[in-house]
């Protein structure tokens, strides 16, 4: 049986991602543990997603393949970095996002940002993919870095609440 965490992790490895910043989401718990134990990946837990995007940008300038792991609420903490840093300098980035607040969300506090998330990506002009099925995950993540590098902008992968 395919495992939700394992599928994303394999994709990360296939893509060659070797520098990751994160703010936790309960759905990312196992993935964060795997990444923390992977000696090929530098993992930097951050205090705020925007800060993490700054750190990733510095790592990219030194040749790293960069990603952020976060909850979609963190997108709200990232907007200015995505525009005034990533768009301005045409930096690539993989955003692996636990998308809360969609259908079936038990916590009401997640709902407003859950709804706003796709619209925010539309407004930012950032390509995003919603992933609900485990079978789709590994391929989507594996391909993401090359795609982001050729587009010269971030790519977001939204892992739905029903994915996990």
């Amino acid at each position: 049986m395919l495992d939700s965490t394992e599928s994303i992790y394999k994709g990360i490895k296939n893509a060659g991602i070797n520098f990751i910043v994160s703010v936790p989401c309960v759905n990312l718990k196992k993935l964060l543990e795997k990444i923390n134990n992977d000696s090929e990946i530098t993992h930097v837990p951050v205090t705020r997603e925007e800060e993490g995007l700054g750190i990733c940008a510095g790592a990219y300038l030194a040749g790293k393949k960069i990603a952020i792991l976060m909850q979609n609420s963190g997108l709200g903490n990232s907007i200015n970095a995505l525009t005034s840093l990533y768009e301005l300098y045409s930096f690539p980035l993989i955003m692996i996002i636990s998308h809360r607040g969609t259908k079936g969300e038990p916590i009401i506090g997640q709902v407003p940002m859950g709804k706003a998330t796709p619209n925010l990506f539309e407004g930012l002009g950032i390509d995003y993919k919603r992933i609900e099925k485990i079978e789709k995950a590994e391929k989507a993540v594996s391909e993401s870095w090359k795609k982001s590098e050729s587009l010269k902008k971030p790519i977001a992968l939204l892992f739905d609440i029903n994915y996990w």
């Binding site: 700054g54 510095g58 790592a59 030194a62 200015n80 005034s84």
Partner: peptide
Amino acid sequence: LGSMGLASSIGLGLGLSQ
């Protein structure tokens, strides 16, 4: 040129990577 606040973060990512 943009992203007020992030200079120290960019520097950190750079420092950790080379």
